[in-house]
Nucleic acid binder design. Structure first.
Lengths: 209, 209
DNA sequence: TGTAAAGTGTTGCAAATGCAACAATAATAT
DNA sequence: ATATTATTGTTGCATTTGCAACACTTTACA
Protein backbone atom coordinates (compact mmCIF):
# COMPACT_ATOMS: atom_id res chain seq x y z
CA UNK A 1 0.00 0.00 0.00
CA UNK A 2 1.19 3.44 -0.93
CA UNK A 3 2.61 5.70 1.75
CA UNK A 4 0.59 8.56 0.36
CA UNK A 5 -2.33 7.06 2.23
CA UNK A 6 -0.54 6.14 5.43
CA UNK A 7 -2.66 6.66 8.57
CA UNK A 8 -5.87 6.87 6.56
CA UNK A 9 -8.85 4.56 6.59
CA UNK A 10 -10.07 2.79 3.45
CA UNK A 11 -13.14 5.00 3.36
CA UNK A 12 -11.11 8.17 3.67
CA UNK A 13 -8.78 7.11 0.90
CA UNK A 14 -11.72 6.48 -1.39
CA UNK A 15 -13.18 9.87 -0.55
CA UNK A 16 -9.81 11.52 -1.04
CA UNK A 17 -9.28 10.00 -4.46
CA UNK A 18 -12.73 11.14 -5.47
CA UNK A 19 -12.28 14.70 -4.22
CA UNK A 20 -8.85 14.90 -5.86
CA UNK A 21 -10.45 13.84 -9.14
CA UNK A 22 -7.74 11.20 -9.44
CA UNK A 23 -7.84 8.61 -12.15
CA UNK A 24 -6.25 5.22 -12.13
CA UNK A 25 -4.89 3.39 -15.15
CA UNK A 26 -3.51 -0.11 -15.41
CA UNK A 27 -0.78 -0.74 -17.97
CA UNK A 28 0.55 -4.01 -19.29
CA UNK A 29 4.25 -4.85 -19.26
CA UNK A 30 6.66 -2.84 -21.46
CA UNK A 31 4.29 0.02 -22.13
CA UNK A 32 5.54 3.57 -22.59
CA UNK A 33 3.16 5.30 -20.22
CA UNK A 34 4.18 8.85 -20.96
CA UNK A 35 3.03 8.85 -24.55
CA UNK A 36 -0.41 10.07 -23.58
CA UNK A 37 0.31 12.45 -20.71
CA UNK A 38 -0.71 16.05 -20.77
CA UNK A 39 1.61 18.92 -20.06
CA UNK A 40 -0.01 19.89 -16.77
CA UNK A 41 1.70 19.36 -13.47
CA UNK A 42 0.70 16.06 -11.99
CA UNK A 43 1.61 13.49 -9.38
CA UNK A 44 1.64 9.85 -10.38
CA UNK A 45 1.54 7.19 -7.67
CA UNK A 46 2.50 3.60 -8.36
CA UNK A 47 -0.27 1.56 -6.75
CA UNK A 48 1.33 -1.67 -7.85
CA UNK A 49 4.06 -2.78 -10.23
CA UNK A 50 7.24 -0.96 -11.22
CA UNK A 51 8.71 1.10 -14.00
CA UNK A 52 11.89 2.62 -15.36
CA UNK A 53 12.56 6.19 -16.39
CA UNK A 54 14.88 6.08 -19.36
CA UNK A 55 16.97 8.77 -20.98
CA UNK A 56 17.41 8.33 -24.71
CA UNK A 57 20.69 9.74 -25.91
CA UNK A 58 21.21 11.69 -29.14
CA UNK A 59 22.98 8.67 -30.60
CA UNK A 60 20.62 5.96 -29.52
CA UNK A 61 22.04 5.08 -26.10
CA UNK A 62 19.60 4.37 -23.33
CA UNK A 63 20.33 5.21 -19.71
CA UNK A 64 18.12 4.20 -16.81
CA UNK A 65 17.71 7.38 -14.79
CA UNK A 66 15.49 5.86 -12.19
CA UNK A 67 13.67 2.69 -11.21
CA UNK A 68 10.42 3.19 -9.38
CA UNK A 69 8.48 0.66 -7.37
CA UNK A 70 5.13 0.31 -5.67
CA UNK A 71 4.41 3.20 -3.35
CA UNK A 72 6.77 5.65 -5.02
CA UNK A 73 5.68 8.76 -6.86
CA UNK A 74 6.83 10.43 -10.04
CA UNK A 75 5.55 12.98 -12.52
CA UNK A 76 6.39 16.56 -13.33
CA UNK A 77 6.63 17.25 -9.62
CA UNK A 78 9.74 15.09 -9.46
CA UNK A 79 11.27 15.22 -12.93
CA UNK A 80 10.46 17.11 -16.12
CA UNK A 81 9.29 14.32 -18.32
CA UNK A 82 7.97 16.53 -21.09
CA UNK A 83 10.68 15.77 -23.59
CA UNK A 84 11.12 13.19 -26.30
CA UNK A 85 14.36 12.12 -24.68
CA UNK A 86 12.61 10.66 -21.68
CA UNK A 87 10.49 7.55 -21.82
CA UNK A 88 8.86 5.71 -18.98
CA UNK A 89 8.44 1.97 -19.40
CA UNK A 90 6.52 -0.44 -17.20
CA UNK A 91 8.58 -3.45 -16.11
CA UNK A 92 5.49 -5.52 -15.37
CA UNK A 93 1.74 -4.95 -15.14
CA UNK A 94 1.53 -1.64 -13.32
CA UNK A 95 -1.31 0.37 -11.82
CA UNK A 96 -0.86 4.14 -11.69
CA UNK A 97 -3.01 6.78 -10.04
CA UNK A 98 -2.78 10.30 -11.46
CA UNK A 99 -3.57 13.44 -9.51
CA UNK A 100 -3.48 16.92 -11.00
CA UNK A 101 -1.20 19.09 -8.94
CA UNK A 102 -3.72 21.91 -8.70
CA UNK A 103 -6.28 19.58 -7.19
CA UNK A 104 -4.27 19.04 -4.03
CA UNK A 105 -5.54 22.38 -2.73
CA UNK A 106 -9.02 22.44 -4.16
CA UNK A 107 -11.84 23.95 -2.10
CA UNK A 108 -13.45 20.70 -1.17
CA UNK A 109 -10.38 18.85 0.01
CA UNK A 110 -8.94 21.51 2.27
CA UNK A 111 -12.11 21.31 4.32
CA UNK A 112 -11.87 17.57 4.88
CA UNK A 113 -10.50 16.43 8.21
CA UNK A 114 -7.95 14.05 6.72
CA UNK A 115 -6.37 16.78 4.60
CA UNK A 116 -3.46 17.44 6.98
CA UNK A 117 -2.60 13.75 7.02
CA UNK A 118 -2.65 13.61 3.24
CA UNK A 119 -0.44 16.68 2.88
CA UNK A 120 2.02 15.40 5.43
CA UNK A 121 2.19 12.08 3.58
CA UNK A 122 2.81 13.87 0.30
CA UNK A 123 5.59 15.97 1.79
CA UNK A 124 7.11 12.87 3.34
CA UNK A 125 6.98 11.06 0.02
CA UNK A 126 8.69 13.90 -1.84
CA UNK A 127 11.20 14.06 0.95
CA UNK A 128 11.92 10.33 0.73
CA UNK A 129 12.40 10.60 -3.01
CA UNK A 130 14.81 13.48 -2.50
CA UNK A 131 16.78 11.48 0.02
CA UNK A 132 17.01 8.59 -2.42
CA UNK A 133 18.26 10.92 -5.17
CA UNK A 134 20.87 12.49 -2.94
CA UNK A 135 22.10 9.12 -1.77
CA UNK A 136 22.55 8.08 -5.37
CA UNK A 137 24.32 11.34 -6.21
CA UNK A 138 26.68 10.61 -3.34
CA UNK A 139 27.63 7.41 -5.17
CA UNK A 140 27.61 8.75 -8.72
CA UNK A 141 30.00 11.53 -7.79
CA UNK A 142 32.61 9.05 -6.61
CA UNK A 143 35.50 9.12 -9.07
CA UNK A 144 36.26 5.41 -9.32
CA UNK A 145 34.17 2.29 -9.77
CA UNK A 146 35.74 0.96 -6.58
CA UNK A 147 34.53 3.90 -4.54
CA UNK A 148 31.07 3.63 -6.04
CA UNK A 149 30.82 -0.04 -5.13
CA UNK A 150 32.20 0.46 -1.63
CA UNK A 151 29.91 3.44 -1.17
CA UNK A 152 26.89 1.40 -2.16
CA UNK A 153 27.87 -1.47 0.12
CA UNK A 154 28.37 0.94 2.97
CA UNK A 155 24.95 2.51 2.45
CA UNK A 156 23.35 -0.93 2.38
CA UNK A 157 25.26 -2.01 5.44
CA UNK A 158 24.00 1.08 7.28
CA UNK A 159 20.42 0.53 6.15
CA UNK A 160 20.46 -3.16 7.02
CA UNK A 161 22.33 -2.51 10.25
CA UNK A 162 24.95 -5.20 9.67
CA UNK A 163 28.26 -5.75 7.93
CA UNK A 164 26.66 -8.75 6.26
CA UNK A 165 23.59 -8.12 4.14
CA UNK A 166 21.80 -9.37 1.06
CA UNK A 167 21.54 -7.07 -1.94
CA UNK A 168 17.96 -6.61 -3.04
CA UNK A 169 18.91 -5.84 -6.62
CA UNK A 170 20.88 -7.89 -9.15
CA UNK A 171 24.49 -7.06 -10.01
CA UNK A 172 23.31 -6.08 -13.47
CA UNK A 173 20.93 -3.58 -11.91
CA UNK A 174 23.62 -2.33 -9.56
CA UNK A 175 25.90 -1.57 -12.50
CA UNK A 176 23.10 0.46 -14.09
CA UNK A 177 22.39 2.22 -10.80
CA UNK A 178 26.03 3.20 -10.40
CA UNK A 179 26.29 3.90 -14.12
CA UNK A 180 29.36 1.73 -14.71
CA UNK A 181 30.08 -1.09 -17.13
CA UNK A 182 28.87 -4.32 -15.59
CA UNK A 183 31.97 -6.27 -16.64
CA UNK A 184 34.30 -3.67 -15.17
CA UNK A 185 32.27 -3.74 -12.01
CA UNK A 186 32.52 -7.52 -11.73
CA UNK A 187 36.28 -7.24 -12.29
CA UNK A 188 36.58 -4.60 -9.56
CA UNK A 189 34.52 -6.66 -7.12
CA UNK A 190 36.96 -9.48 -7.85
CA UNK A 191 39.88 -7.24 -6.86
CA UNK A 192 38.07 -6.16 -3.70
CA UNK A 193 37.67 -9.81 -2.74
CA UNK A 194 41.31 -10.64 -3.54
CA UNK A 195 42.48 -7.69 -1.46
CA UNK A 196 40.33 -8.83 1.44
CA UNK A 197 37.97 -5.87 1.62
CA UNK A 198 34.83 -7.89 1.11
CA UNK A 199 33.47 -11.39 0.89
CA UNK A 200 30.58 -12.34 -1.39
CA UNK A 201 28.34 -15.32 -1.84
CA UNK A 202 25.80 -14.65 -4.54
CA UNK A 203 24.08 -11.46 -3.48
CA UNK A 204 25.15 -11.87 0.12
CA UNK A 205 27.87 -9.33 0.87
CA UNK A 206 30.13 -9.08 3.90
CA UNK A 207 32.31 -6.08 4.62
CA UNK A 208 35.60 -7.11 6.20
CA UNK A 209 36.89 -3.72 7.29
CA UNK B 1 12.55 32.83 -7.88
CA UNK B 2 10.93 30.06 -5.92
CA UNK B 3 10.72 30.55 -2.24
CA UNK B 4 8.93 29.32 0.79
CA UNK B 5 7.24 32.67 1.25
CA UNK B 6 6.05 33.35 -2.27
CA UNK B 7 2.63 35.03 -2.43
CA UNK B 8 2.72 36.02 1.21
CA UNK B 9 2.79 39.49 2.75
CA UNK B 10 5.58 40.61 5.08
CA UNK B 11 3.23 40.52 8.02
CA UNK B 12 2.07 37.00 7.24
CA UNK B 13 5.62 35.76 6.89
CA UNK B 14 6.50 37.18 10.29
CA UNK B 15 3.44 35.55 11.82
CA UNK B 16 4.20 32.27 10.10
CA UNK B 17 7.76 32.17 11.37
CA UNK B 18 6.53 32.86 14.84
CA UNK B 19 3.85 30.18 14.77
CA UNK B 20 6.29 27.68 13.29
CA UNK B 21 8.67 28.41 16.17
CA UNK B 22 11.39 28.93 13.60
CA UNK B 23 14.77 30.22 14.57
CA UNK B 24 17.24 32.05 12.38
CA UNK B 25 21.00 31.89 12.67
CA UNK B 26 23.64 33.83 10.77
CA UNK B 27 26.94 32.10 10.09
CA UNK B 28 30.22 33.56 8.96
CA UNK B 29 32.12 32.26 5.95
CA UNK B 30 33.60 28.73 6.05
CA UNK B 31 31.61 27.55 9.05
CA UNK B 32 30.50 23.93 9.40
CA UNK B 33 26.88 24.53 10.24
CA UNK B 34 25.91 20.96 10.96
CA UNK B 35 28.13 20.54 13.98
CA UNK B 36 25.39 21.70 16.31
CA UNK B 37 22.25 20.30 14.73
CA UNK B 38 19.95 17.95 16.55
CA UNK B 39 18.76 14.65 15.18
CA UNK B 40 15.14 15.74 14.70
CA UNK B 41 13.66 16.22 11.30
CA UNK B 42 13.96 19.80 10.20
CA UNK B 43 13.79 22.10 7.23
CA UNK B 44 16.52 24.66 6.77
CA UNK B 45 15.92 27.60 4.45
CA UNK B 46 18.74 29.73 3.11
CA UNK B 47 17.57 33.31 3.62
CA UNK B 48 20.78 34.68 2.18
CA UNK B 49 24.20 33.38 1.24
CA UNK B 50 25.19 29.94 0.00
CA UNK B 51 26.73 26.69 1.15
CA UNK B 52 28.15 23.39 0.02
CA UNK B 53 27.24 19.91 1.19
CA UNK B 54 30.41 17.88 1.21
CA UNK B 55 30.96 14.15 1.41
CA UNK B 56 34.15 13.15 3.21
CA UNK B 57 35.54 9.91 1.88
CA UNK B 58 37.06 7.15 4.00
CA UNK B 59 40.48 8.13 2.73
CA UNK B 60 40.25 11.88 3.03
CA UNK B 61 38.77 12.81 -0.34
CA UNK B 62 36.13 15.50 -0.40
CA UNK B 63 33.28 15.51 -2.90
CA UNK B 64 30.81 18.35 -3.29
CA UNK B 65 27.43 16.64 -3.28
CA UNK B 66 25.45 19.81 -3.62
CA UNK B 67 25.73 23.58 -3.78
CA UNK B 68 22.81 25.47 -2.30
CA UNK B 69 21.94 29.12 -2.77
CA UNK B 70 19.55 31.71 -1.40
CA UNK B 71 15.96 30.48 -1.40
CA UNK B 72 16.80 26.80 -1.48
CA UNK B 73 16.07 24.38 1.33
CA UNK B 74 17.98 21.51 2.85
CA UNK B 75 17.95 19.46 6.02
CA UNK B 76 16.92 15.94 6.91
CA UNK B 77 13.90 16.38 4.68
CA UNK B 78 16.18 16.44 1.65
CA UNK B 79 19.26 14.49 2.66
CA UNK B 80 20.28 12.51 5.71
CA UNK B 81 22.97 14.69 7.14
CA UNK B 82 23.31 12.87 10.43
CA UNK B 83 26.64 11.27 9.67
CA UNK B 84 30.22 12.27 10.23
CA UNK B 85 30.87 11.82 6.53
CA UNK B 86 28.76 14.81 5.62
CA UNK B 87 29.73 18.36 6.38
CA UNK B 88 27.98 21.50 5.36
CA UNK B 89 30.17 24.57 4.86
CA UNK B 90 29.07 28.16 4.27
CA UNK B 91 30.70 29.73 1.23
CA UNK B 92 30.06 33.23 2.51
CA UNK B 93 28.14 34.89 5.33
CA UNK B 94 24.88 32.93 5.33
CA UNK B 95 21.58 33.29 7.11
CA UNK B 96 19.60 30.13 7.77
CA UNK B 97 16.10 29.68 9.14
CA UNK B 98 15.34 26.38 10.83
CA UNK B 99 11.88 24.88 11.15
CA UNK B 100 11.13 21.65 12.99
CA UNK B 101 9.32 19.33 10.65
CA UNK B 102 6.59 18.54 13.17
CA UNK B 103 5.75 22.21 13.51
CA UNK B 104 4.49 22.47 9.94
CA UNK B 105 1.22 20.93 11.05
CA UNK B 106 0.85 22.35 14.53
CA UNK B 107 -2.61 23.30 15.80
CA UNK B 108 -2.14 27.01 15.50
CA UNK B 109 -0.80 27.14 11.99
CA UNK B 110 -3.35 24.92 10.30
CA UNK B 111 -6.01 27.40 11.36
CA UNK B 112 -4.27 30.36 9.75
CA UNK B 113 -5.59 31.47 6.40
CA UNK B 114 -2.19 31.54 4.71
CA UNK B 115 -1.48 27.91 5.61
CA UNK B 116 -2.46 26.52 2.22
CA UNK B 117 -0.14 28.96 0.49
CA UNK B 118 2.71 27.98 2.77
CA UNK B 119 2.15 24.26 2.22
CA UNK B 120 1.95 24.70 -1.53
CA UNK B 121 5.19 26.66 -1.47
CA UNK B 122 6.88 23.95 0.56
CA UNK B 123 5.72 21.24 -1.81
CA UNK B 124 6.86 23.31 -4.77
CA UNK B 125 10.25 23.83 -3.19
CA UNK B 126 10.77 20.13 -2.52
CA UNK B 127 9.59 19.45 -6.03
CA UNK B 128 12.07 21.95 -7.50
CA UNK B 129 14.89 20.40 -5.53
CA UNK B 130 13.89 16.96 -6.78
CA UNK B 131 13.87 18.21 -10.37
CA UNK B 132 17.34 19.66 -9.90
CA UNK B 133 18.60 16.35 -8.49
CA UNK B 134 17.12 14.34 -11.30
CA UNK B 135 18.55 16.67 -13.92
CA UNK B 136 21.96 16.21 -12.40
CA UNK B 137 21.53 12.44 -12.25
CA UNK B 138 20.71 12.56 -15.94
CA UNK B 139 24.18 14.04 -16.48
CA UNK B 140 26.09 11.96 -13.93
CA UNK B 141 24.80 8.73 -15.47
CA UNK B 142 26.30 9.61 -18.83
CA UNK B 143 29.20 7.27 -19.47
CA UNK B 144 31.70 9.72 -20.95
CA UNK B 145 32.92 13.17 -20.06
CA UNK B 146 31.90 14.26 -23.54
CA UNK B 147 28.30 13.21 -23.01
CA UNK B 148 28.22 14.87 -19.61
CA UNK B 149 29.44 18.16 -21.05
CA UNK B 150 27.11 18.03 -24.05
CA UNK B 151 24.24 17.06 -21.76
CA UNK B 152 24.91 20.02 -19.52
CA UNK B 153 25.17 22.41 -22.45
CA UNK B 154 21.93 21.06 -23.85
CA UNK B 155 20.13 21.54 -20.53
CA UNK B 156 21.43 25.09 -20.29
CA UNK B 157 20.49 25.79 -23.89
CA UNK B 158 16.95 24.58 -23.17
CA UNK B 159 16.70 26.63 -19.97
CA UNK B 160 18.08 29.77 -21.60
CA UNK B 161 16.08 29.19 -24.76
CA UNK B 162 18.97 29.73 -27.13
CA UNK B 163 21.85 27.85 -28.71
CA UNK B 164 24.09 30.60 -27.37
CA UNK B 165 24.14 31.14 -23.62
CA UNK B 166 26.41 32.22 -20.81
CA UNK B 167 27.27 29.69 -18.13
CA UNK B 168 26.44 30.94 -14.66
CA UNK B 169 29.07 28.79 -12.99
CA UNK B 170 32.83 28.60 -13.52
CA UNK B 171 34.43 25.75 -15.45
CA UNK B 172 35.99 24.58 -12.21
CA UNK B 173 32.55 24.37 -10.64
CA UNK B 174 31.17 22.60 -13.72
CA UNK B 175 33.82 19.91 -13.41
CA UNK B 176 32.82 19.38 -9.77
CA UNK B 177 29.13 19.33 -10.72
CA UNK B 178 29.74 16.69 -13.38
CA UNK B 179 32.22 14.93 -11.13
CA UNK B 180 35.01 14.79 -13.70
CA UNK B 181 38.63 15.91 -13.61
CA UNK B 182 38.79 19.57 -14.56
CA UNK B 183 41.83 19.10 -16.82
CA UNK B 184 40.23 16.22 -18.67
CA UNK B 185 37.12 18.31 -19.08
CA UNK B 186 39.08 21.21 -20.53
CA UNK B 187 40.78 18.80 -22.92
CA UNK B 188 37.45 17.33 -24.00
CA UNK B 189 35.95 20.79 -24.53
CA UNK B 190 38.98 21.47 -26.74
CA UNK B 191 38.17 18.39 -28.84
CA UNK B 192 34.52 19.45 -29.08
CA UNK B 193 35.64 22.82 -30.44
CA UNK B 194 38.09 21.24 -32.92
CA UNK B 195 35.41 18.90 -34.18
CA UNK B 196 33.03 21.80 -34.66
CA UNK B 197 30.37 20.81 -32.15
CA UNK B 198 30.63 23.95 -30.08
CA UNK B 199 32.17 27.40 -29.96
CA UNK B 200 33.26 29.06 -26.72
CA UNK B 201 34.33 32.48 -25.63
CA UNK B 202 35.00 32.55 -21.92
CA UNK B 203 31.80 31.30 -20.35
CA UNK B 204 29.77 32.06 -23.46
CA UNK B 205 28.90 28.81 -25.19
CA UNK B 206 27.39 28.28 -28.63
CA UNK B 207 26.06 24.94 -29.80
CA UNK B 208 26.72 24.43 -33.50
CA UNK B 209 24.55 21.40 -34.11
C1' DT C 1 47.20 49.31 -5.02
C1' DG C 2 49.52 45.32 -4.32
C1' DT C 3 49.22 40.58 -3.05
C1' DA C 4 47.01 36.39 -2.34
C1' DA C 5 43.68 33.29 -4.01
C1' DA C 6 40.92 31.37 -7.54
C1' DG C 7 40.21 30.14 -12.17
C1' DT C 8 41.96 28.60 -16.65
C1' DG C 9 44.84 26.11 -20.11
C1' DT C 10 48.22 22.46 -21.37
C1' DT C 11 50.36 17.86 -21.71
C1' DG C 12 52.78 13.37 -20.63
C1' DC C 13 51.82 9.28 -18.54
C1' DA C 14 49.86 5.51 -15.94
C1' DA C 15 45.78 3.52 -14.58
C1' DA C 16 40.97 2.73 -14.85
C1' DT C 17 37.27 1.70 -17.59
C1' DG C 18 34.19 0.65 -21.45
C1' DC C 19 33.51 -2.43 -25.06
C1' DA C 20 33.20 -6.76 -27.37
C1' DA C 21 32.77 -11.43 -27.51
C1' DC C 22 32.48 -15.19 -25.15
C1' DA C 23 30.63 -19.35 -21.87
C1' DA C 24 28.08 -20.98 -18.06
C1' DT C 25 24.42 -20.93 -14.89
C1' DA C 26 19.98 -19.51 -12.88
C1' DA C 27 15.36 -18.02 -13.32
C1' DT C 28 11.05 -17.78 -15.76
C1' DA C 29 7.50 -18.87 -18.86
C1' DT C 30 4.90 -22.03 -21.87
C1' DA D 1 9.75 -30.56 -18.72
C1' DT D 2 11.79 -27.83 -21.80
C1' DA D 3 12.71 -23.72 -24.19
C1' DT D 4 13.77 -19.07 -23.61
C1' DT D 5 15.42 -15.26 -21.31
C1' DA D 6 18.10 -13.04 -17.71
C1' DT D 7 22.06 -13.03 -14.89
C1' DT D 8 26.76 -13.78 -13.91
C1' DG D 9 31.69 -14.45 -14.86
C1' DT D 10 35.88 -13.81 -17.75
C1' DT D 11 39.51 -11.47 -20.46
C1' DG D 12 42.06 -8.87 -24.22
C1' DC D 13 42.37 -4.49 -25.98
C1' DA D 14 41.76 0.31 -27.18
C1' DT D 15 40.37 4.43 -25.26
C1' DT D 16 39.25 7.56 -21.84
C1' DT D 17 40.29 9.57 -17.82
C1' DG D 18 42.53 11.05 -13.62
C1' DC D 19 46.62 12.75 -11.84
C1' DA D 20 50.59 15.64 -11.51
C1' DA D 21 53.06 19.48 -12.52
C1' DC D 22 53.29 23.30 -14.83
C1' DA D 23 52.36 28.57 -16.54
C1' DC D 24 49.36 32.24 -17.14
C1' DT D 25 45.23 35.20 -16.23
C1' DT D 26 41.56 37.01 -13.59
C1' DT D 27 39.35 38.10 -9.38
C1' DA D 28 39.03 39.17 -4.51
C1' DC D 29 40.36 41.69 -0.64
C1' DA D 30 43.16 43.93 3.07
Amino acid sequence: MTNLFANMREKEIKKLMQVLKSNTVTYRKNINILSNRTRDDYIAIIDSGSLQIIFNDYDGNKTIIEELNTGEIFGSLTYSLNTDEITCITKEETKITYIEYNQITNDEIIKSDFYIIFIKNLIRLLSDQLNICNQRIELLTQRTTRDKILGYFKQQSTIKGSKTFIMNITFTELAAYLSVDRCSMTREIGYLKEEGFIKTNGRKITLLY
